[in-house]
């Protein structure tokens, strides 16, 4: 029963992790760690509650742990070994027009909210619960993330005159 429920969520966890990390191997590692932790804490899951929110919450916490941990800079061996820059690209906008790469330029916390909204279509309240943050924080991260992504995609300088949101 639970196996089916978890199996059904794996593709979604992978999609989200891929979008969040931008790297296939790293994303699948994160999914694997998430599932292992989920099984080891299965007794904490309350039957009838939202399995997906629970799993995404576990993934979020693992990610936070990862980011806190000092780590060695690593490189995927199998992919993107060829992207040696041949000219300065910071302001050139061409590379950044690529959405995936633009997404990688968002702060982690904004990217998370943006992706949970866009890909998972979670409600703001569910996102607040999953990430364990106030709903106002969800809204401000969403607003800033969307605007930042827009300006990167349009090659504009960052605009700072956003309205303050409670």
């Amino acid at each position: 029963m639970e196996s089916h429920a978890i199996l059904a969520e794996i593709p979604r966890l992978r999609r989200y992790a891929r979008a969040l990390l931008g790297d296939r191997a790293a994303a699948d590692d994160l999914v694997q760690d998430t599932l292992e932790r989920a099984w080891s804490r299965f007794h904490q899951w309350q039957a009838g509650s939202d399995m997906r929110a629970w799993l995404f919450g576990i993934m979020h916490n693992l990610r936070v742990d990862q980011l806190r941990r000092p780590r060695l800079p690593t490189h995927s061996i199998d992919e993107d070994d060829s992207d040696v820059p041949t000219r300065a690209t910071q302001n050139d906008g061409l590379e950044l027009r690529d959405l995936a790469s633009a997404l990688g330029h968002l702060p982690d916390e904004q990217r998370e909210v943006l992706l949970l909204v866009a890909l998972e279509e979670m409600s703001y309240a569910d996102i607040a619960a999953t990430l364990d943050i106030p709903i106002g924080t969800v809204m401000s991260r969403l607003s800033r993330g969307r605007e930042r992504l827009r300006s990167i995609m349009e090659g504009q300088p960052q605009t700072a005159n956003l309205k303050v949101v409670r």
Partner: peptide
Amino acid sequence: QKQALRSLFNPVLDEPLPENLSVLA
């Protein structure tokens, strides 16, 4: 932007699961 993100990442849903993940179901 929202639609573009979905088009970009939805194909991941259809990728076959690697074994190390499917056994964890």
